[in-house]
């Protein structure tokens, strides 16, 4: 659906070219929620703006449905942008217009008939749950309500793609959750492709299907969220997971130094998360185990558990082989 092909982008600052993106190759599938995570300055803001060409690449191509958007004429580009919604960290609503007028604006730009605009705006206001606030001005709304207006505005023209530029970074955790739930619902209902940039792993974990980790203008890790989240490889990715989980592995290993036995990290995903596997295997193989650290949570719709366990006594090798065979990911730590 969206393809980046060998994208280079640099900005001219004080007569020098400062690279922002260095050789990005990515493909985003139709209907998925694709997360791009990175620290500020990693280039994620630039990357998302290449899709609707708010930024132009210095080299390389951006294809949407196999059309090279960098080659479009000005009017074709405007027509294409009318089919890509975008929401922003600071909402970017018109302060001088009401909620209704704000949502009607993209429809006017796209040249809809006045008679068609009013019912569509009402429909969108109802979809984001702001019926009570239709005639208020943005200044009278909370942050979460403003972002709901932003979402209704972005989706009013029935776009196929929604770009989210740090859409929840200005919101408190509870509001973030409700806005993400709304986005996830909309993704399912409309089979909408969502590209979301963020610096919070928690946002990625809650709604993304796949994630790309951006660092220094390059994609350093890419894959399904569960894979990247549970088995982070790049130091930057580990940093993000740590921030989300408040787990510092090196610190933990120091704490476990005096614990006897073999230290293993077990990762359960899906149905195995709730199965009594550890107990069954322990009875079978006569091992003892103590759980040193662990977490059980969900990644989007998939439950997962990750336990750091010390095994002692019994046939540990057989136990690990059994756990592996039953679908767990087994990593020996010590």
């Amino acid at each position: 659906m969206i393809q980046f092909q060998n994208i280079q982008k640099s900005f001219r600052v004080a007569d020098r070219d400062v690279p922002a993106l260095q050789g990005i190759d990515l493909e985003i599938e139709a209907g998925e929620v694709f997360g791009i995570i990175g620290h500020s300055g990693a280039g994620k803001s630039t990357l998302v703006r290449l899709i609707n060409l708010l930024e132009r690449p210095s080299a390389g191509q951006v294809l949407i449905d196999n059309i090279d958007v960098t080659a479009l004429s000005a009017s074709a580009l405007r027509a294409m942008r009318q089919n890509i919604g975008m929401i922003f960290q600071h909402f970017n609503l018109l302060a001088s217009k009401t909620v209704t007028e704000n949502i009607a604006w993209p429809l006017k730009i796209a040249g809809w008939e006045a008679a068609a605009i009013a019912p569509r705006v009402r429909e969108m206001i109802a979809r984001v749950g702001l019926q009570e606030h239709a005639h208020k001005y943005p200044a009278q709304l909370s942050g979460g309500q403003k972002q709901r207006v932003g979402i209704a505005r972005a989706l009013a023209t029935r776009p196929k793609i929604l770009l989210c530029d740090e859409a929840t970074s200005a919101l408190d955790p509870q509001t973030t959750r409700s806005v993400l739930d709304l986005l996830a619902d909309i993704n399912r209902e409309l089979r909408l492709t969502i590209v979301l940039i963020t610096h919070e792993m928690d946002v990625v974990r809650r709604i993304c299907d796949r994630v790309a980790v951006l660092d220094g203008g390059r994609v350093v890790e890419l894959g399904p969220v569960a894979e990247v989240f549970l088995h982070p490889k790049h130091p930057t990715t580990r940093g993000f997971v740590f921030e989300a989980e408040h787990v510092d592995e090196t610190e933990q290993y120091d704490d476990f130094a005096h614990v006897p036995g073999r230290l293993v990290r077990l990762t359960f995903t899906g149905d195995t998360t709730y199965a009594p596997l550890l107990g069954e295997v322990a009875r079978d193989t006569g091992i003892d185990f103590s759980i040193l650290a662990g977490r059980i949570d969900r990644i989007k719709d998939t439950p997962y558990g990750q336990l750091t366990v010390a095994f002692s006594a019994g046939d540990i090798d057989a136990a690990l082989a059994q756990l592996s065979a039953r679908g767990l990911s087994v990593e020996e730590l010590r």
């Binding site: 580009l77 294409m80 975008m86 922003f88 023209t157």
Partner: peptide, 8 residues
């Protein structure tokens, strides 16, 4: 920027 993104 929002207006440009809408294709204005």
């Amino acid at each position: 920027e929002a207006a440009q993104a809408m294709g204005a």
